[in-house]
Design a protein around this nucleic acid. Structure first.
Lengths: 172, 172
DNA sequence: TTAAAAAATAGACACTGTCAACATTTCCGG
DNA sequence: CCGGAAATGTTGACAGTGTCTATTTTTTAA
């Protein structure tokens, strides 16, 4: 894997090593810019999956989750970069808004999950936090190929559907 | 935050810049060694919390989860280092065993969760994978201070207890 | 004690990010 | 169209880094 570096970018662009400075003050800013673009595509991917699914709450949740996982699958390095920037969301102007745009998707679908709890802010927070936590954990483990127990037995990552139905209890 | 580097380590040890080479072939190996020690302490922390809790399944699960979170809270950088090595578990001799030792804790407690499913390998795998996924996601988000919605509203991370009871359905 | 093994040293090399001074190009208002 | 201003590119330098080599020192053990 070719490592991300300002000089490598300059090289690939056929430009001198100091040129990137005019566009990105330093390496962290470049990473922030890449992460910003990543979050935008991330949200788009989730929304694209949602658009192709039935409108009911459960389908939308599953579609967004599948979009989430598909993005991670296709952009493992970018995904890691994105969430390695999560503690420096002020490094690039549009990074914080872009990350919230992605989070907003999960907020939206989580709203449909427990309608009777929507009046309770704490309950609503728990639902969306739980959803976020779970999908994020799954994605991280998948991006890092860390499902070793599962892999040892089946040679594959566990399918999202096999562990995700836990949320069906939410709309009972 | 002082960045981890071989030369910085040599400096702090009051030794020449080439000395570490005799103990760690390269930087990745040093990181692997640190991660190995981290996984061992990680498992110890979870087991210590479990030892101080009632023996029933739910208490043990909650205790291990609290140990998990406590470790992350006290060792954020080490935790990130540990799980950034998850794709290179062969870099250091004892790293893979140490990481499995930590995973074994969660496997243990997850066994108590759905006794009637233990005969079904797939069911059992789902339970422990779900538990692992969820706690890991929570820990990552906490380590990266990424509960921004919650923080914006309450100024605090969501408590594990507020989102964790989702698993109570498992032993119904 | 002495030979072998382990550890430390010093120098070199190729990278990296970052900075400053300078040159070039592009753009836009007069 | 032109000329200044802004943007962009260039070059050289510096301090850091990982990594390699040859050499020396220290420790270990037979």
């Amino acid at each position: 894997m070719e490592k991300l570096s300002l000089r490598a970018c300059a090289n690939r662009a056929g430009v001198s090593h100091g040129a990137p400075k005019n566009h990105f003050a330093n390496l962290a800013v470049l990473q922030g810019a890449l992460a910003t673009e990543g979050f935008k595509r991330f949200a788009s991917t989730m929304r694209a999956h949602m658009a192709g699914a039935p409108a009911d709450a459960k389908s939308q949740v599953m579609a967004s989750a599948r979009g989430y996982v598909a993005f991670v699958e296709d952009n493992k390095d970018l995904f890691r970069l994105m969430f390695s920037m999560e503690r420096r969301l002020d490094i690039y102007p549009d990074l914080l808004p872009a990350s919230r745009e992605a989070y907003a998707v999960l907020r939206e679908v989580s709203k449909g999950l427990s309608p009777e709890n929507c009046e309770n802010p704490q309950g609503q927070l728990s639902t969306e936090t739980m959803l976020w936590t779970f999908i994020h954990g799954y994605a991280i483990l998948k991006a890092n190929k860390q499902f070793y127990t599962s892999n040892a037995e089946t040679g594959m990552d566990p399918k999202l559907e096999d562990i995700f139905p836990v949320f069906t209890y939410l709309d009972k």
